[in-house]
Design a protein around this nucleic acid. Structure first.
Length: 558
RNA sequence: GCGCCUGUGGUUCAGUGGAUAGAACGUCGGCCUCCGGAGCCGAAAAUCGCAGGUUCGAGUCCUGCCAGGCGCACCA
């Protein structure tokens, strides 16, 4: 728990800062202490530019600050060396004893090695995908699913109690069009020539649902003459069916939600109307031209007001979304994270403004925007669109490239990057996909452990093994990198960027494969064998743990 | 027109204001008596879109421009 090595170094630095202040160095405030992994091995395992940043504040020379800090940093058993690298860096070299402690911890604490306690008792919500139940999930939703699920896992590692929620828009014009589209399909099945509703959903996926609707509802519907009374029945049916498909896809993708929140409940339990009254009391509403308006302009300068209730009496999506966020706030989340596609970017300021009126503390509501996925078919780029019925479904992607590869592919990039999903490449990607590289490292380790077992070599308790024997540069590099994992996870959580973990895995796997080709784990030297078995176990545990966070399997055989 | 995102080797992407900008794929050349060759090593390949600015120091921050993506509803 709480195995941040950067935190340890930071504490050491703070003590040293306190010491040099007593010796006459003057600074009125501390700069943020930034500790990074340097580019070159000669510059240590970790490094800080504190002399630079402190010099900027105090006006004293970075050379003097650096030298003074280093003399006061000596004496920690964390490092074997601390070097001042003029003109302004301090480089830290982990001590062998710290590295030993690291792999012992990993082997004994296992998954708890990456666990933090800081979020304890704090509720966080991650709301993601929330695709309208008007069609199957497509490749873009896959990105949201992989990102949101991984982020939720990362946050729960840091100690938060995370709730994953899917908001279902089962109201409004889109759903109405969907029901009419289904009705048209059903009539087609009966051989009637009907004109398809304009702006209807033309995708083939409605055809099997239409068949099922006929089987289950046909008789009931035939008795109803008034079409307007048929539609509500069909609406309920089609939403249920499509949600069932969505759940199946997500199940295959390894994504499970704690809660499915239906927009319609906000109507049923009157919360929507209560929200409207609330906003009215706050004097944020007015009527104009028969519609009810929200005074967005009071908060967002230069922006126009937005309609909450239309002339025809229907509430807008914005209205129920305000009610939805009011409900979330009431549920006591320390933080609410909404993961939205870039096509909702213009909606962010509006929702934030509404949140302010609802009384959200500014940092409590965070929208993460991920850029949309475009499909690359040869030289052509095709964007996904549910309405036109021309899209690659998540189901197809899963069929083509598999869950592990798909999830890794989606989560390897930052949310900001515009993802070109080259399906042709993804299809033939199997051998060269980076996820296999990582899983292969895991499988290789399992295989070695299995071999050791067959040879009758028992895995010793880490305390009983002489880890001082792990002295080669390759072994040291692995241990050093393992020590950085908790910080990597912490940073992924703080920045809401799970891709750091995917990058970490690639590097760790590379270090392991490199080690593997140079050294034998199982050898005549019994003591060394035991030590290396501990090392590779640590690597194995870490790979499996991080893959698990990313929702990817860690097979022992491939 | 306005707002947000992106522009880094041939391609896809990493990169927390710091030290000589990294990796993968592709290309070329090597490495299997021996724990899994789905691996490893080496080489070629980058004016970090362009132009200014801030700074001791800019791929990273600011301004302008160029190119691409997404928005700019009484749709969701």
């Amino acid at each position: 728990m709480d195995n941040s090595v950067k935190k340890l170094i930071e504490n050491n630095l703070r003590q040293a800062l306190f010491q040099i202040k007593k010796k006459g160095f003057s600074y009125h405030r501390l700069p943020p202490i930034i500790i990074t992994q340097p580019k070159k091995k000669e510059w240590g395992d970790l490094s800080t530019n504190l002399p630079f940043s402190l010099s900027k504040i105090s006006g004293e020379s970075s050379l003097e600050i650096g030298r003074a800090l280093v003399t006061h940093l000596k004496g920690s058993d964390l490092f074997s060396r601390v070097e001042f690298a003029p003109p302004g860096f301090i480089n830290f070299f982990f001590s062998p004893s710290y590295l030993k402690e690291t792999i012992r911890k990993i082997v004994t604490e296992r998954k708890n090695f990456t666990r933090f306690s800081e979020g304890k008792n704090k509720l966080v919500q991650v709301e993601f995908i929330s695709a309208n139940p008007t069609g199957p999930l497509h490749i873009g939703h896959g990105r949201a699913a992989a990102f949101g699920d991984s982020l939720a896992n990362v946050l729960s590692k840091v100690g938060y109690q995370v709730q994953k929620e899917y908001y279902v828009n089962d109201m409004g014009g889109q759903i109405k069009r969907l029901a009419y589209s289904l009705w048209a399909r059903m009539q087609e099945l009966e051989g009637k020539r009907v004109s398809f509703p304009k702006d209807g959903y033309r995708g083939d996926y409605l055809i099997p649902i239409a068949k099922k609707a006929q089987e289950e509802l046909g008789e009931k519907i035939r008795k109803i003459k008034d079409e307007s009374k048929i539609i509500p029945i069909l609406t309920k049916f089609v939403v249920k069916e499509i949600l069932k498909n969505i759940r199946e896809d997500l199940d295959k993708f390894g994504v499970k939600f704690n809660n499915w929140f239906f927009e319609s409940t906000l109507y049923q339990n009157n919360e929507l109307k209560k929200t409207i009254s609330f906003l009215k009391e706050k004097d944020f509403l007015y009527e104009k031209e028969g519609a009810l308006w929200f005074k967005t302009s009071l908060i967002l300068k230069g922006k126009q007001d937005r309609v909450l209730r239309r002339k025809n009496g229907d509430y807008t999506y914005f209205a129920s979304d305000i009610a939805y966020h009011k409900d979330k706030l009431k549920r006591g989340f320390y933080r609410v994270i909404d993961i939205w596609g870039a096509d909702h970017i213009g909606y962010v300021p509006r929702m934030k403004a509404a949140a302010e009126v609802l009384g959200y503390p500014p940092e409590a509501l965070k929208m993460v925007i991920y850029q949309l996925v475009t499909l690359k078919k040869g030289e052509k780029r095709v964007s996904a669109s549910t309405r036109e019925g021309e899209f690659i479904t998540l189901k197809e992607v899963l069929k083509e490239v598999g869950r592990d590869a798909a999830r890794f592919f989606f989560v390897l990039r930052t949310a900001d990057s515009h993802l070109d999903f080259d399906l042709e490449l993804a299809k033939k990607q199997t051998p060269e996909n980076p996820v296999f590289y990582i899983q292969y490292a895991h499988a290789r380790i399992c295989s070695i452990l299995e071999k050791a077992k067959k040879m009758g070599i028992l895995l010793e308790e880490p305390e009983k093994v002489n880890l001082d024997l792990l002295t080669t540069p390759e072994e040291r590099d692995i241990m050093s990198y393992l020590a950085l994992l908790p910080d990597c996870l912490k940073e992924a959580a703080d920045s809401l960027e799970p891709h750091h973990l995917a990058v970490y895995l690639q590097e760790l796997s590379s270090l392991f494969h490199y080690f593997y080709t140079r050294h034998r784990v199982i050898s005549e030297n019994k003591e060394l064998t035991n030590a290396r078995l501990i090392l590779i176990q640590a690597v194995k545990i870490v790979i499996a743990d991080v893959l698990n966070i990313l929702g990817i399997s860690a097979p022992s055989k491939m």
